[in-house]
């Protein structure tokens, strides 16, 4: 594959996979928490939190990217603190691309997981607590396993979104080959130069293959998750 893809194209593919995986896995714990909170808890600001989570879905991506640049740039209120405390830089780095694509995929992840949590019958959770399980154990042994297929679906949606994210990423971290140039940015860049169509087309093929692959892998994982529960019993 390295022969077929040029070094610049290969870089873009590798970076995209890295960015999308990190974005998805890092946002999963927060996604689980927020999805559970939205599904099960009634609290002040419920509607506001819901709107906030969905914001990246409805805002123009360029706006989200610009807001990230203001907030997470090295001079930004959040980015500055993170740099001083941990030395983490987002702006114009692959970490920034991961942040941008994570934020853009977050609404999709939360929606899918929230639906999965809402589909778990609270009566089963009650039954578990009468059997002596505390809240954490109820979550770990009843809620989570029953919601697993939906959680996997949420992960795949977020991963696919992260692979394809363009607007917010290019606004936040620009389009630097080898550092922030993901597949969509690379396709865009190749289409801007004469004779770049061939490279662009190869990357388009790669995106199609990766997207279909992600969906297939998710299917298998979901089936495995259900199957493993059958086998263990």
């Amino acid at each position: 594959m390295t022969d077929w893809l040029g070094p610049e194209e290969w870089q873009a593919v590798a970076l995209s996979l890295q960015v999308a995986s990190v974005a998805t896995l890092v946002s999963l714990p927060l996604g689980l928490f927020i999805a559970y909170a939205l599904a099960r808890w009634r609290f002040f600001g419920h509607g506001l939190l819901n709107a906030l989570v969905h914001l990246p879905l409805v805002l123009p991506p360029v706006v989200t990217g610009y807001l990230l640049l203001i907030g997470f740039g090295r001079q930004g209120p959040i980015g500055g603190v993170l740099y001083d405390a941990f030395g983490i830089t987002f702006a114009f780095e692959w970490t920034g691309a991961a942040l941008a694509s994570g934020v853009m995929g977050f609404p999709l992840m939360v929606r899918a997981i929230r639906l999965a949590f809402e589909a778990v019958d609270p009566k089963l959770e009650q039954a578990a607590s009468t059997l002596g399980a505390n809240r954490l154990m109820v979550f770990a042994t009843v809620t989570l396993p029953l919601a697993l297929p939906g959680i996997i679906a949420g992960l795949v949606l977020a991963f696919a979104k992260a692979m394809g994210e363009f607007g917010a990423t290019i606004t936040f971290v620009s389009n630097i080959p080898g550092r922030t140039q993901t597949i969509p940015s690379a396709i865009y860049a190749f289409l801007q130069v004469p004779g770049g169509e061939e490279s662009a087309f190869r990357l388009i093929l790669v995106s199609i293959v990766v997207s279909i692959g992600a969906v297939l892998v998710a299917e298998v994982l979901a089936r495995r998750a259900v199957g493993a529960r059958v086998d263990r019993s």
Partner: peptide, 12 residues
């Protein structure tokens, strides 16, 4: 006392 510490079995 929280539900899980009551040790009361429930058949629904």
């Amino acid at each position: 006392v929280p539900v899980h510490k009551r040790r009361i079995g429930m058949v629904f």
